[in-house]
């Protein structure tokens, strides 16, 4: 648990530092390039999504994550640096210890939810955003020919760095923190183990500006 709180504070700290630094950088950029306003309306991201479970919970102790995909859309809120949008991501996990979670083979994890972000323009080619949101997550579990679902409420904190080749197309990288607050009912002995799943996620993909 301590590790997870440290990770969350670290992620927020990174976001704050990059925010502060970027504001200073922005002033410089504005002075040099006279960029006072983002000249795009919205951005799309699509890419590879690789969460790694951390902490003392079922996702870390009994599941092994494989990669997935993510898609997000963020639009400018009027002429402010704030962004609003949504994201969807999917990844797959194999069950490595059925004794801890029950007898099923694997999970397909789908998440969807709104995002609120803040955008910083470093230069015309580099930009940094930080976004956060709360969404819903479905763990679609498969046991032989049987399927059942565990659900969760998910919190994301997603700082992103992107490099743009031109006004439309770029690549991005993000290392985000994610916590799934599970709705699984358990007896007291299993309560903390199934209460939440924590992930540090890495993403890489294309960013399109319109």
């Amino acid at each position: 648990m301590n590790l997870n709180i440290k990770q969350l504070i670290f992620a927020i700290g990174i976001g704050f530092i990059t925010n502060t630094y970027a504001q200073e950088e922005k002033k410089t950029t504005e002075q040099v390039n006279d960029i006072t306003q983002d000249d795009h309306y919205a951005m799309f991201k699509i890419g590879y999504y690789n969460p790694i479970a951390v902490g003392d919970n079922f996702a870390n102790e009994a599941l092994e994550q494989t990669g997935g995909v993510e898609f997000s859309f963020l639009a400018n809120v009027f002429e402010t640096p704030f962004l609003i949008g949504f994201q969807y991501n999917y990844f797959h996990s194999n069950v490595t210890n059925q004794e801890l979670v029950g007898t099923y083979d694997d999970s397909e994890i789908h998440s969807f939810g709104p995002l609120l972000g803040y955008q910083l323009l470093f230069t015309e080619t580099w930009r940094v955003t930080i976004a956060s949101g709360v969404g819903i997550t479905h763990y679609k579990n498969r046991a032989s020919n049987e399927h059942f679902t565990d659900t969760a409420t998910t919190l994301w904190v997603i700082p992103t760095v992107s490099y743009h080749f031109n006004k439309t197309l770029g690549v991005y990288f993000s290392g985000s923190y994610r916590r799934d607050f599970m709705n699984i009912h358990t007896p007291d002995g299993l309560d903390s183990f199934f209460k939440s799943a924590n992930y540090v996620s890495f993403s890489l993909g294309l960013q399109i500006l319109i």
């Binding site: 099923y104 579990n141 049987e146 699984i184 009912h185 358990t186 007896p187 299993l190």
Partner: peptide, 11 residues
């Protein structure tokens, strides 16, 4: 229908 109860685990 699924035979397994959703969001439930036993010890």
């Amino acid at each position: 229908d699924p035979e397994v109860k959703e969001n439930e685990r036993s010890l």
